[in-house]
Amino acid sequence: MNHEAFGLSTNLFAFLDWHGFFFLLFAGVACVAAVMVVLSDNVVRMALHLVLSLGATAGLFFLAGAEFVGAMQLMIYVGGTLVLLVFGVMLTAQTQLVALRTPAGDRVIAGILAASLLAVLVQAAFSIESWQKSGQGVATAPTATPLGMALVGVRVDQVEEENLVRPKSGYLLPFEIVSVHLLVVLVGAAYLARAKRRRVPRSVDLVASADSTKPMSSVAASSTLVAGGPK
């Protein structure tokens, strides 16, 4: 699709580019929701806006032709991670904690910093000529199959000429590492977040008297919920 053919004067609707439209829609939703996350003080609202932002991002992924990644974005992020976050919100949802206010001075400083960071990033985004060329608009093949093959070690997208002689490696090893990593993380998270036994008062005294000379004693005394050890 040649953009030279469509001038400003052309009919907006007749020549409406749906791809550009949906890009604007998702980008707008993502950005606005992200800003709302920043601006809202209520943690529950923050979570809602975050869901919106991430979902819109998934739409952007679809638009960029990365349908598998977009699907994963929806499933893992929106469906998994955010549910986890919402659980966290609910577990800690005490009234005084739901809306913790930030000092105004910090807001101002953060605003200035954000503006400068944004300026830098946007400047960088437009600094390379080739990045500003729009795509050919050619529909691309679905990426799920190449991705799946790449994750088990075969790069079907690279099966060409010289690569047969010296093939590029796939992502089998990183995939395995990430999977083991996830497993470890889940075990660790379960360990950290498990239900704690209430501390026996006598041992508190013992620890307190034993550590009375150390500054840690205040921590120990104040935290009567510290685990005595594994069950």
């Binding site: 580019d17 791809h19 890009f23 604007l24 992200a34 990033l121 985004a125 990045w131």
Partner: peptide, 22 residues
């Protein structure tokens, strides 16, 4: 420009920048 089908990498980068900054 965007609406006229000239979505480019840079536009995505701008969105990413906004999300990152936020």
């Amino acid at each position: 420009f965007v609406l006229c089908g000239v979505v480019s990498v840079s536009h995505y980068l701008v969105v990413g920048a906004v999300l990152f900054t936020c």
